[in-house]
């Protein structure tokens, strides 16, 4: 892996090593390290896992196997905004399926998919402890509860990619 000195968003080996150092160089810090990598780079790339394995002295397959076990860890790039809808019993009973359909209608993607412009990833998750405000979704770190299907377009609008010229999705 080459390291670069520009402000690119691709993880450089040095960045990854720095994260490993910060979290601690033992196997038991693997999950904090993976969290941290994801926070910095959006997802955990194969290359990042290779570096982490080498730094921790464990096998890459172990890092990969661990990362793929947990639903909050992504080993593939995700959309800029991640929409999570709960479909566990409390939300299910309060009509989460209708909310799910509304999101699919608004974005044209099914759960597990990412919009073509890479702006949204949509996933169905297990209970997020928001049962008191069921049905609930989370968009990134923001919670939306007591939802109705009608409320969805407005919520999603807040995260819409900008259509200005910069192309950065500012």
């Amino acid at each position: 892996m080459k390291s670069c000195n520009s402000d690119c968003c691709v993880p450089c080996e040095a960045d990854i090593v720095a994260i490993v150092d910060k979290c601690g160089r033992t196997e038991c810090n693997l999950i904090p390290i993976l969290h941290e990598l994801q926070r910095s780079f959006g997802y955990i790339s194969d290359e990042a896992m290779e570096t982490v394995a080498a730094e921790l002295g464990i096998t890459v397959s172990q890092v990969h196997g661990t990362a793929t076990f947990y639903t909050l860890l992504y080993t593939r790039p995700q959309g800029k905004n991640i929409i999570k809808i709960c479909d566990s019993p409390p939300c299910h009973l309060q009509g989460s399926k209708a909310i799910q359909a509304a999101i699919t209608k608004a974005l044209g993607i099914e759960p597990g998919e990412t919009t073509l412009d890479g702006n949204f990833t949509f996933e169905v998750v297990s209970c997020m402890g928001l049962c008191g405000v069921a049905p609930a979704i989370m968009v990134n770190d923001d919670v939306y509860g007591n939802l109705t299907a009608e409320a969805i377009p407005e919520i999603l609008d807040k995260y819409a990619a900008c259509s200005c010229c910069c192309g950065e999705g500012c």
Binding site: S88, S126, C127, G129, C131, G132
Partner: peptide, 11 residues
């Protein structure tokens, strides 16, 4: 690790 759906007391 309160994950059982319907529980939100620990939170």
């Amino acid at each position: 690790d309160e994950g059982e759906p319907g529980n939100f007391k620990d939170r």
